[in-house]
């Protein structure tokens, strides 16, 4: 191991610890967003009903923390964008830093944030269920449904990695925007235009993209897809931010 590697490791470690501590305020928005999502979830994640059974109509309300997880993924996306903004970048000047250490420490910070937010998102599902049990007087069908521990852990890890993947999207977009403010307009136009054009070729393109990740039933393949996507996005962001250094 060269002296440079040791120095890089040390600097990245120091910066990561600093960022985890200094960006604590980001978690306050996470809590508010997750509580907001919980509030929305109280109405039910879905409803199904029958026309009639005998003399009664039957409505089944479905409850899960899906909305909380989706909101958490969006939070990860936004948090990553915010990390790339000038205000946050300037905080790094107290350290001996370069683009690489800055990016690596940001990625580590985002990973730590994904772990925390992923765990709280999954646990909020239990809070939702306790609230439903305690304060609402409904008949519960299969209320005790709980998956095996192994499946639970797979789901937890996948949730954490989904948040991390969305962070990588945000980080890439945030980095691109730093190239030029023009990209604030260009990026949404490219995304909407891209989806529009792809949809003209194949109407189900958004569903297909979603299915690629969210319907993958093999845990290891799902993990590979998510990690590879996040890795590509972060690598692209590092590559772009290196160009940024040359420009400025």
């Amino acid at each position: 191991m060269s002296l440079n590697n040791v120095r890089l490791q040390k600097v990245v470690k120091k910066q990561s610890v600093y960022k985890v501590k200094a960006n604590l305020s980001m978690y306050s928005s996470l809590i508010v967003i997750q509580l907001l999502a919980l509030l929305f979830s109280l109405g039910g994640t879905g409803t199904m009903g029958t026309s009639s059974v005998g003399y009664n109509g039957i409505t089944i309300r479905l409850f899960s923390a899906d909305i909380v997880i989706v909101f958490t993924m969006i939070w990860g996306f936004i948090t990553a964008i915010m990390l790339t903004t000038k205000a946050y970048k300037e905080d790094e000047f107290i350290f001996v830093t370069n683009r690489l250490t800055s990016n690596l420490s940001n990625i580590i910070f985002l990973f730590v944030a994904s772990i925390f937010s992923g765990i709280t998102a999954v646990l909020s599902g239990y809070l939702l269920k306790v609230i439903m049990f305690s304060f609402f007087n409904y008949e519960f069908l299969h209320a005790g449904t709980s998956s095996e521990f192994g499946i639970f852990i797979s789901g937890l890890l996948t949730t954490i990695l989904y948040v991390f993947m969305f962070s990588s999207f945000g980080y890439l977009i945030g980095t691109v925007v730093q190239l030029s403010k023009m990209f604030i307009i260009i990026v949404p136009v490219v995304i909407i235009g891209g989806v529009y054009l792809l949809s003209r070729i194949n109407q189900d393109v958004i569903l297909d993209i979603g299915s690629f990740y969210f319907l993958e039933s093999n845990f290891f393949i799902a993990l590979t897809k998510i990690i590879l996507t996040a890795g590509i996005c972060f690598l692209a962001a590092i590559f772009i931010s290196n160009r940024l250094e040359v420009r400025k």
Partner: peptide, 22 residues
């Protein structure tokens, strides 16, 4: 009368491995 029932589902990152549908 409309009878209302509640059921809890696991979250989608779990459902994708169990094959359960929302």
């Amino acid at each position: 009368e409309d009878l209302e029932f509640i059921t809890f589902k696991t979250e989608f990152p779990v459902r994708q491995f169990t094959g359960e549908k929302l």
